[in-house]
């Protein structure tokens, strides 16, 4: 028995087109624990949406295993789909139907009462506009309707792919609060988003992927603690401190308030300065944000990917020769 709501192991997705084979997702492992909000991050084209579409049975995995609520998917999707609400990419509804008509068709397809449509419309703030045609909606209204659709099932897992796209700041805040609220109520939310500050605010855990591969995964706190740590150093003589610390092999940069020293050992900083008679007035650990972690990981992955591609090219050339 597992307490993971989403599990994927060795997931791979290939697309075959005119330009040959393209691998969108490669050997991806994913583990999303129950409850809370889990961020799913990656640059454009990194395979986030493809992974989500595979989990939901919209795309077929070339290889690998997936489970939702411990049930293998897509085989057992009919058994678990009633517990899953999802918005994949842009909201997709019939443009000639009204918002209400679109929701009614979805609601009736799962045998839910029509009153659930009223409740969902009210929750997302579309009351009064639900009789308008979908094509007349703004992007923000379309997003809200998509979220209303996910609420028709009273889901235990909500998969949201860029849910705040096109929303104004007030709308973004509303959706963020809704997501946080759902997470606190025990609904597991998988949130794919480009807005990293938003993810950092609402997510308890996150997975970062690049080029279809897993780069990092875990609690947001732990992710922020990875990589090189840094400290803000305040001293009376910054120039002398810079000389001493650089001489000790540390990376130092001047800031408006003092120095930024990259080190995961604060004792080394105090010892180096203290032995030379330079006394610290402040030593503060600098916390990294998710954006810097994300950029470091994805930049490194891009370099690695290019390196691999170069190696592959060489390999291919060698093979051909």
């Amino acid at each position: 028995m597992t307490d993971l709501v989403i599990e994927a192991a060795g997931l791979r997705k290939e697309f075959r087109g005119r330009r040959g084979l393209r691998v969108a997702v490669e050997n991806l492992d994913l583990a999303v624990p129950g409850g809370g909000v889990h961020g799913f991050l990656g640059p454009n084209g990194s395979g986030k949406t493809t992974t989500i579409r595979m989990l939901l049975g919209l795309a077929r995995a070339t290889r690998g295993e997936m489970r939702l609520f411990g049930q293998p998917v897509p085989e057992s999707l009919p058994a678990v789909i009633d517990r899953v609400g999802a918005v994949v990419e842009s909201p997709k509804f019939s443009p000639h139907f009204t918002g209400r008509q679109n929701l009614l068709l979805l609601s009736r397809s799962i045998g839910a009462p029509d009153t659930r449509v009223d409740a969902a419309i009210e929750t997302v703030g579309l009351t009064g506009r639900d009789g308008d045609r979908f094509k007349s909606y703004s992007l923000g209204m379309k997003q809200r309707l998509a979220i209303a659709a996910t609420l028709l099932k009273d889901p235990q897992l909500l998969i949201l792919d860029e849910p705040t796209n096109g929303l104004d700041p007030a709308g973004i805040r509303e959706i963020r609060d809704t997501i946080r609220d759902l997470g606190e109520r025990g609904v597991t939310v998988l949130l794919s988003s480009h807005i990293l500050a938003e993810v950092q605010q609402v997510c308890t855990s996150a997975t970062i992927i690049g080029n279809g591969r897993l780069l990092a995964s875990g609690r947001v706190e732990d992710l922020l603690d990875t990589g090189a740590a840094a400290y803000a150093v305040e001293v009376a003589d910054p120039d002398a401190a810079t000389r001493l610390l650089t001489g000790a092999g540390l990376t130092v940069a001047a800031t408006t308030t003092g120095l930024r020293v990259e080190s995961d050992d604060p004792a080394a900083i105090t010892r180096t300065l203290g032995e030379a008679g330079v006394w610290l007035s402040a030593l503060t650990p600098l916390r990294r944000d998710l954006e810097s972690v994300f950029l470091e990981l994805t930049a490194a992955d891009t370099l690695g990917h290019e390196h691999h591609a170069g190696a592959d090219d060489l390999g291919r050339k060698g093979g051909a020769a």
Partner: peptide, 10 residues
């Protein structure tokens, strides 16, 4: 909208 329909009846 076909993809949306299949999210309700897979």
């Amino acid at each position: 909208s076909m993809s949306n329909q299949l999210l309700f009846e897979p």
